[in-house]
């Protein structure tokens, strides 16, 4: 499986990472080398094998439905790029 330049642009868009036209060819080359490495496993017969999503058979624990975390909004927003009146500021998304 080889990625075209269009494929790389599409993946970059899905990843929300700007890749400039200058960077595109080098990125394509390196991703294709990585995919070539990964492709080694595609031919392995895995019929009947249960996928292993996790290192252990984990079950999500449940806890009491009670508030446990204190209000630390000021501390958390102190590291935000842009806030006002306790709200995070982002570019306008709806005109």
């Amino acid at each position: 499986m080889s990625l075209s330049l269009d494929d790389v642009s599409r993946i970059a868009r899905l990843s929300r990472i700007a890749v400039t036209p200058d960077e595109l060819a080098a990125t394509q080359n390196q991703l294709n080398r990585i995919l070539h490495l990964i492709d080694e496993m595609r031919a392995v017969d895995t019929t009947g094998i249960e996928p292993m999503a996790h290192a252990q058979d984990v079950f999500l624990r449940l806890r009491e439905d009670a508030a446990t975390a204190p209000d630390r909004r000021a501390a958390f927003q102190a590291v935000a790029p842009a806030v006002e009146n306790g709200l995070y500021l982002v570019p306008k998304v709806i005109e």
């Binding site: 990625l3 990843s15 991703l31 595609r42 392995v44 895995t46």
Partner: peptide
């Protein structure tokens, strides 16, 4: 970091999930 995010996005994307991600998880079990 960008390469790994791009690779990860690709192997999870529509049409490739079973061939890459699910297959990798089966090999993980083996």
């Amino acid at each position: 970091v960008k390469r790994r995010i791009l690779t990860g996005t690709y192997v999870l994307s529509h049409g490739y999930y079973d061939a890459y991600y699910l297959q990798a998880q089966k090999i993980r079990r083996i």
